[in-house]
């Protein structure tokens, strides 16, 4: 590995950008790839993009040689909108699963350091806060307030981003009303189908910790299998 390559990988990581390093296992030729860039070498593009999206490094036959594609993805991130009760177990579980966390709630009494010790908290308005966060293909966004004033702007920002998971807490009735509002705001049914609502896998969850489990399970499924239940 060239030192220049090592430094580029470290720089991409610091900027939370995905990068794939390909190395020929017999020729030892190395190529550093930004899978989404226009100048991504054509022969590597498909394999590099698939490796990036699935977060799986591995060996691929490219131009008659075995290349090892090493994926350096930005960290997993979870944005929780609404510092409500469910946010507490969800934040703890997500940290255990390796997510960097941000909790967004303009209501300072909800999103207080006492309720969420050692966690990054933003009191900015959700649309601005979500946008400033720069959600990427390794980001998940979950809204928990039920309050359209807070949830809706966050969901709009989420739909305008490439984040891999969007979840919105609320009953079927709440969710239908939410979709009606988003439709009026100009979103299509296809776009809105990215929102998991009511949020979480249907495991009959009752208490906040159980609901957090159902959300984490659905988020994990979206991350690892690329599916939407």
């Amino acid at each position: 590995m060239k030192r220049l390559t090592l430094n580029s990988i470290l720089k991409s990581r610091a900027h939370k950008q995905a990068v794939v390093r390909a190395v020929g296992l017999t020729s030892h030729k190395e190529v550093l790839i930004d899978p989404l860039a226009d100048d991504c070498p054509e022969a590597f593009r498909d394999a590099a993009q698939a490796a990036m999206m699935s977060d799986k490094s591995g060996v691929h036959a490219i131009e008659g040689e075995d290349y090892f594609l090493n994926v350096f993805n930005p960290p997993l991130r979870l944005i929780i909108v609404g510092a409500v009760h469910i946010a507490q177990p969800l934040a703890s579980m997500a940290q255990l699963a390796g997510y960097d966390l941000t909790i967004i709630d303009p209501r300072e009494s909800f999103a207080s350091p006492e309720r969420f010790p050692d966690m990054a908290i933003s009191h900015d308005w959700p649309d601005e806060a979500v946008k400033a966060f720069g959600p990427d293909h390794r980001t998940s966004i979950v809204t928990l307030t039920h309050d359209p004033k807070i949830d809706d702007p966050a969901l709009q920002a989420a739909l305008n981003s490439p984040c891999f998971y969007i979840g919105a807490l609320g009953s079927n009735k709440t969710h239908k009303a939410r979709l009606d509002r988003l439709r009026e705001a100009g979103f299509t049914d296809e776009q809105m189908s990215r929102i998991n609502g009511p949020v979480g896998l249907d495991i009959g969850a009752k208490c906040p910790a159980e609901i957090a489990i159902s959300i984490m399970a659905q988020m994990t499924e979206a991350l690892r299998k690329g599916t939407k239940s």
Partner: peptide, 15 residues
């Protein structure tokens, strides 16, 4: 907005 909190689960490998 505040900085994202780093999770330390993968810390060693990232270093």
């Amino acid at each position: 907005m505040s900085e994202t909190k780093k999770s330390d689960t993968l810390g060693t490998d990232e270093r």
